[in-house]
Amino acid sequence: MMLFEKQKGREAETTPLEHQTGASLPSVDGILDKCIKLASVADSDGWVTVLQNDWMLLDKKEVPEAERSSSSEIYLRGVWTMNLSVVECCDMMWSFSERRKSWDTNFVSAEILKGTSWHDDDIVVNSEINFGFLMHMAGVPRKLCSRCWRKWDYPSPGIVTSAMIPWSAESDAFDPANPILTLKVLTIGPHPQDAGKCIMTTIESNKMGAMPKWMLSMIMSVTAPQLMKGLEGRYIAGAKQKGDVVDLTPPGFCPARVSRAEL
């Protein structure tokens, strides 16, 4: 959460690749401005805590009526203390080759529609996912086309911020008709006391507000924590402990230089 307060103001697995800007993709400056504005919502009032323990915080919040893209749009916020370094967490979250199946049981496949590699900081990705009958019955799609944008050393040195927005492969543009996702912003930064850990913060606006309250509550308080804890545990066993970590960070990026004051 503190990371977003500052917000205000490879996978070619053998040869390192340079980070690209995705210059061939259409401009999304307006959408990215909305993502930055979304990040600033994390420091506003009105959040309702759904679940909090020693490693995570999950909150929800109503979207002001004048700012909604649909009547079912809500804000969700998660703050996660991960038992992973920043490099490891980036690999776990953003690697989508076949090796992902060793830690992500919901992952079926993914392909890059625009961009050249998972090292690119602006790509369009088509993913197939399987979250089980209940999640898909609740409206989570089995296939998701999204545009994923990353900015390193932002909003301060040693931190990476990404935005994920629903994308239409047909029109090569933002997809406002996506059944579940509107905007999602994710920030990963080093833990202020433990170099072996990192803090990951997610904030998103989505269309889950139309779900029955019991279903939304269950997804946030039971399903989401189980998914994230399982993802982390399998990554540690399937990649970290086997020395199979892929460094997606660009040359010169150094999470260790972030001080407690910067966080």
Rank of each mutant, 00 (worst) to 15 (best):
N130M: 02
E204K: 06
F96S: 05
S205V: 01
S70P: 01
D91H: 15
T182C: 04
M164F: 10
A138D: 14
H136P: 03
T116L: 14
P157Q: 09
A138W: 14
R100E: 05
M200R: 10
P190H: 09
T202V: 15
H136T: 08
L144D: 10
V87C: 07
P141Y: 11
W118N: 15
T81D: 15
C89H: 03
S109G: 05
K197I: 02
T161C: 09
W94N: 15
E98Q: 08
N130R: 00
L144P: 03
D153E: 03
R77I: 00
T116E: 10
F133V: 07
S72D: 09
F131W: 11
V79H: 01
G78D: 08
S102V: 06
C90S: 11
Q193T: 14
K151N: 12
Y75T: 06
I199R: 10
A163N: 02
L181I: 00
C198L: 07
Q193N: 11
L183K: 01
S70H: 02
W94P: 10
E204P: 02
L134K: 15
W80H: 13
M135R: 13
M208P: 10
A173R: 14
V185G: 07
N178F: 08
V124G: 08
T116V: 09
N178R: 06
V86W: 01
W167H: 01
S146G: 02
K207V: 00
G132M: 04
E204D: 05
V108A: 04
T182Y: 12
R150C: 04
D122F: 08
S109Y: 09
S72M: 01
S70R: 05
V125M: 06
F174P: 01
W118M: 15
M135G: 12
R77A: 00
K143D: 09
I188T: 07
W94G: 12
Y154N: 08
M164A: 14
N106I: 03
F133M: 06
L113Q: 13
R150E: 05
C145A: 12
P155G: 06
M93G: 06
S146H: 04
F174T: 05
L113T: 13
F174D: 00
T161P: 06
D153N: 08
A195L: 11
Q193S: 12
L183G: 00
E98D: 12
E128G: 03
K143N: 11
M135K: 13
M164K: 08
P166L: 03
A177Y: 14
R77F: 03
V125Q: 08
S95E: 13
S162V: 01
M93Q: 11
D194P: 15
T201K: 12
R142L: 13
T161W: 05
L186G: 03
S109C: 05
